[in-house]
C-alpha cells in the first residue's frame, strides 16, 4: 500500500515546505521529517515528507542494475558523481509544460 513519491524540497518555513516533483510544486509538511532542508529529496506521502531519500544508496542500486543491464541497454544512470542533489540526470526544464 501507500503511494509515496520522491520530491525535492524547494523551501521550508517551520514545519511547512514547498516541494517539487517534475515541475509541479505543492505544499507539504515536514513535521515527520524535521531534519529535512532545502535541496533534500524526500518521499512524500499524503502531503507529508516521511523519509529522506539516500542518494548514495540510490546510486548503488542503480550501479547494481547497470551491471545487470545487457550491453547497449543501460539503465538511466548517466555519468559519474552528481554534484547538485539529484542523481546527475538532466532535468527537463518546467518550461516544457508551456
Amino acid at each position: 500500500m501507500c503511494l509515496a513519491v520522491p520530491a525535492k524540497i524547494i523551501e521550508t518555513d517551520g514545519q511547512q515546505a514547498i516541494v517539487e516533483i517534475g515541475g509541479l510544486r505543492k505544499q507539504a509538511s515536514i513535521v515527520l521529517l524535521p531534519e529535512a532542508v532545502t535541496g533534500d529529496y524526500v518521499l512524500l506521502h499524503a502531503g507529508f515528507a516521511i523519509s529522506m531519500i539516500d542518494k548514495k544508496e540510490a546510486l548503488e542500486t542503480l550501479l547494481l542494475f547497470e551491471e545487470l543491464a545487457p550491453p547497449g541497454g543501460r539503465p538511466g544512470l548517466s555519468g559519474p558523481g552528481p554534484e547538485d542533489g539529484d542523481l546527475g540526470l538532466k532535468e527537463t526544464p518546467a518550461a516544457d509544460d508551456e
Binding site: 503511494l3 516533483i21 517534475g22 509541479l24 527537463t92 518546467a94 516544457d96 509544460d97
Partner: peptide
C-alpha cells in the same frame, strides 16, 4: 505525457 502530468499521476495515484 508531460512531466508535470506524470508527477500529478504519481502524487495522486
Amino acid at each position: 505525457v508531460k512531466p508535470s502530468v506524470r508527477a500529478a499521476c504519481e502524487l495522486f495515484g
